[in-house]
Simulated scan of single mutants.
Amino acid sequence: MADHNISATSKDLGFTFPAEWHPHRATWLTFPHNDASWQGDKLAKMRPQYFEFIKQISQGENVCFVTNDEALKNFITEELSKINVDLSKIEFLIKPTNDAWCRDHGPSFVINPETGQKMIVDWGHNAWGGKYPPYNDDNRTPRAVASYLNIPIINPGIIMEGGAVEFNGAGSLLTSKSCLLNLNRNPHLNQGQIEKTLCDFYGVEQILWVEGGIVGDDTDGHIDDTTRFVSEDTVVACVESDVNDENHEILQTNLQMLKEMRLVNGKQLNIIELPMPKAVIIDDFRTPGSYANFLICNAGVIVPVFNNPNDQVAIDILGQAFPGRKIIPLLATEIIWGQGSFHCLSQQEPLV
């Protein structure tokens, strides 16, 4: 394989990052094994919800685990067997790992629609502005995946996280100022330089910015907790109806910015408002519970729910937003304590 840093950009080479609803070959995950994110007994408590997530994805595509060691691989295999997961759909890449958030440190797959080729963009990972060292093992994950799949890899040379960006598959990338313009990521780059790098290496035409993220989100405001494309011209945007809630103002600001945006073709976005859950508080901690942290996979749309009064409202809205796709609500009441959910944990590999 071309295991070297290609001098051209992804866009130069005809590659682009497809929308999440593009068919998947697989979904990648980094198996959680230390208690950095789920302390004490919380790691054991979240695992049944995590394994149910795996089971649902595996109904429609392969699931690829980046797994710390052979012992962990054996544990995963045993646990998946207990819940009747088809093990022929499970792949393992054994390598050292730090944390579980594969959306952010894992491989970013771009495809060339003309040639059917696939390539990995190896963005730098610094654990959300250096918040959770060590992160060196996770930062090496994209290169290891490229080697495993025997596909080329390209390195833009800047810090970026998969949860910070959202794609419509038609030239538009949506992100938040509070995250990508934060000085703890790329302090040497201005907004224009960041936009150019994103366009060059994700193969998009425009960068659309909302302001910020929700309370409890330690990523400085990832877009996948607030605003998601559901088609080329439609987004679901989180809103908080309680004017006294900490999330009300920032989500209204984001909503107004979305209303003013124009896509590459000049059209306005269709905006579907998605309620926030009533505050998801665990051990006096306000978690970043959000129905927007869903994963679109071949089997359907896996939506985090929280035994919350707004669960069914959100399920119904997303059912209308994704006509023809199965909505799969899964409890994330234990997973969310780690400050992320199903989308944060996973990264799709497109089928070409």
Rank of each mutant, 00 (worst) to 15 (best):
C297W: 01
I94R: 05
R228P: 01
E79K: 15
S241V: 14
V63H: 00
A146H: 08
V313Y: 00
A279I: 04
C102D: 01
I271V: 08
E334K: 12
K131M: 08
K45V: 11
A2Y: 14
G106H: 02
S10K: 00
T197R: 09
D138E: 08
L331K: 09
I158A: 10
G171R: 09
H105R: 06
P133Q: 00
I153V: 15
E195K: 11
Q320E: 08
Y132N: 15
E334W: 02
C102E: 05
T141C: 12
D104Y: 13
C102M: 12
E61W: 06
D224F: 05
D233L: 02
G40Y: 10
T175D: 00
W128T: 07
I54Y: 00
C102W: 04
I214D: 01
S290W: 04
G212L: 10
A8Y: 03
K259I: 11
K131Y: 08
I328S: 00
P96H: 02
F92L: 13
S241I: 12
S37P: 06
P304R: 03
Q252N: 14
H248V: 10
L263A: 04
Y135L: 10
N155C: 15
N310T: 09
E70T: 12
R103Y: 06
L87N: 04
R140N: 05
E205R: 11
S178C: 10
Y50H: 02
L274E: 02
F306I: 02
T226R: 04
L80N: 04
D35N: 13
K95H: 13
I250V: 15
F109A: 09
S58R: 05
I271L: 02
K267D: 08
F306D: 00
L183S: 11
P134L: 14
F15K: 01
H188A: 10
R325Y: 00
